[in-house]
Design a protein around this nucleic acid. Structure first.
Ligand SMILES: [Zn+2]
Ligand SMILES: [Zn+2]
Ligand SMILES: [Zn+2]
Ligand SMILES: [Zn+2]
Lengths: 141, 141
DNA sequence: CTTGACTCTATAGTTACTAGAGGGATTGTA
DNA sequence: TACAATCCCTCTAGTAACTATAGAGTCAAG
């Protein structure tokens, strides 16, 4: 008979609307319907939804997950591609980390510019922000 | 007489549309207009836009930047709040980094699950993804 | 006087959902 | 059996920070 959408949502821990959204986005196949037009999900739907949600918790994009789902159709043959997909995602995550590390450095340096309001009559942080060379200050035309 | 929008965009290194967007978003005051209705920016506009773009390059939200601009009206008195704002942003960045670090760990562990397609007739990565406890597998009702 | 580069407004697209309106279905209870 | 509560349905609009059109007007050079 299948699970109704609310039950599924409770099981995997997401909102009902999210499940309908995945269906419209082509990530979850359309389930069968009850006499009263309610969606009725099978265990394989549940499994696939769990996969999607877990991938999302790993911050994979829906597009990446779509690719993964395609590969899943022939999991054994596509083992290599699946590994590649995960590796590519790890790379994205590491790139983000590098960016954030750089950012934190810039912010700490910025933060250290302030020597208190008595020193210059203003807050030096603002001077730094609006007078930066990287956004065109002091560059003729 | 002031700079036209394209000139300003070139100076600070952003798109023309972005500048108009900031105006509509209340981050940049409306500039004066030429006889032909073209926007004409002053040096103080330029400064403020530079501040905005630099803050964006530090990944501050527009809302955070709006707050900063308010504080800027009385920079000396608000020195403390300005520092707090920057500190709060550093905290956000560090929280993100922590999250990414955790994520990378999970991904590397996931990646290590695969023992090649010969072992189990499928790719174990997929089993891990769809059979995870954290999204409800193996939990009765 | 026409071409081309620029500008204007207004609107729709992007990502991954979330929230609501306005209805129908089902269930439990009086 | 009537009614209320709780579910479910579709459709649309909102979020963040832009980006990308469409269709029109402006301006300088040749
Ligand atoms: Zn200061
Ligand atoms: Zn800068
Ligand atoms: Zn594998
Ligand atoms: Zn999981």
């Amino acid at each position: 008979m299948g699970y109704k959408i609310g039950e599924v949502a409770r099981k995997v821990g997401c909102k009902v609307e999210t499940i309908r959204f995945y269906e419209k986005a082509g990530l979850l196949p359309e389930p069968s319907r009850s006499a009263g037009n309610f969606r009725l999900y099978s265990d394989s739907h549940l499994e696939q939804l769990r996969l999607i949600r877990h991938c999302r918790s790993l911050d994979m994009s829906l597009d990446t997950i779509r690719n993964l789902l395609k590969l899943r159709l022939h999991a054994a043959e596509n083992c290599r591609e699946i590994n590649d997909l995960v590796d590519a995602h790890i790379c994205r995550v590491e790139a983000q980390m590098k960016l954030l590390t750089h950012l934190r450095g810039s912010l700490q340096k910025l933060r250290s510019q302030c020597s208190g309001p008595e020193a210059s009559g203003t807050c030096e942080i603002l001077l730094e922000l609006s007078g930066c060379e990287c956004h065109g200050a002091g560059v003729g035309s």
